[in-house]
């Protein structure tokens, strides 16, 4: 009887293996990118962001930001308080990013010298954030439907099994002609991403240097964007990260932009 069960089990495994392999192989580029997009990041997150801008001569400028992010039913709200340098202290930036496909983000900025919350256009996604190597779009979650995705290959990177996916924007005027992303198979983290400019030349590379499980959720803590054409690098480190702390809804309001941290 036992012998029969073992035989059946072995048979089942042999039958299943090709299907498992087949199932893995049939993951499309879109499915892989969708999995990255859908990777749980918690209901809310608070952390201290340090951005170090390093130019070709090695000169470094540091910007520090306190950020709060929260998922709502149909949108993600984020508020950033600029802590340093001194001349931008108490400036705050709020972004409401909608799940609805094609709906533009709403953005506001509070400048302490003006003492007024001002609505700004979210159309400048190709602008660089605070002089860094990250554009506003690089920092957001680009919806998978904005690009056409193609699985190029599978390979190891830094000891991790990765899918390599090429994404080509559907929008003709987009700032990148294509991106290539190395995605860790079992974690759905984009570990490396190459950006190609409108002429198809390699522009910059994003490398994830450190990620950890916080509250059982994979969280990127340290990444670097290197502009290969200008030999300029931005290091982005997230410290004191806390997930699911129950940030109140009213954190993401004009009142809190003005009040500051």
């Amino acid at each position: 009887m036992l012998n029969k069960q073992i035989k059946l089990a072995i048979l089942a495994i042999f039958i299943a293996i090709p299907f498992i392999t087949f199932a893995q192989e049939t993951l499309t580029g879109l499915q892989i990118i969708q999995n990255v997009y859908d990777r749980p990041a918690g209901e809310d997150q608070v952390g201290d962001l340090t951005m170090s801008l390093i130019n070709s001569r090695g000169d470094e400028r540091v910007r520090t930001i306190k950020q709060f992010v929260k998922e709502f039913d149909n949108m993600e709200k984020k508020i950033m308080y600029f802590v340093s340098p001194a001349d931008v202290r108490n400036t705050s930036f709020m972004n409401w990013s909608y799940n609805e496909e094609g709906k533009d983000d709403d953005q506001w900025i509070y400048l302490p010298a003006l003492k007024r919350v001002k609505r700004i256009s979210s159309d400048s996604k190709s602008d660089y954030f605070m002089g860094s190597d990250f554009t506003y779009d690089d920092l957001g979650d680009r919806h998978p439907s904005s690009d056409t995705h193609k699985l190029l290959r599978e390979e190891k990177l830094n000891g991790e099994d990765c899918y390599v996916v090429e994404s080509t924007p559907k929008e003709e005027e987009y700032m990148y002609s294509r991106t290539v992303t190395w995605i860790i198979k079992d974690k759905w983290i984009g570990m490396k991403k190459e950006f190609y400019d409108e002429d198809g030349d390699h522009l910059k590379t994003l490398s994830v240097k450190k990620f950890e499980k916080i509250d059982n959720l994979w969280t990127i803590l340290h990444s670097e964007m290197h502009n290969v054409q200008k030999n300029h690098t931005t290091k982005m480190e997230l410290k004191n990260v806390k997930l699911n702390t129950g940030i109140p809804d009213n954190k993401f309001t004009e009142r809190m932009m003005k009040r500051g941290i």
């Binding site: 533009d104 609505r119 256009s121 159309d123």
Partner: peptide, 9 residues
Amino acid sequence: FSSTLGSFV
């Protein structure tokens, strides 16, 4: 008032 119209504010 202030509102966005596409890329315009």
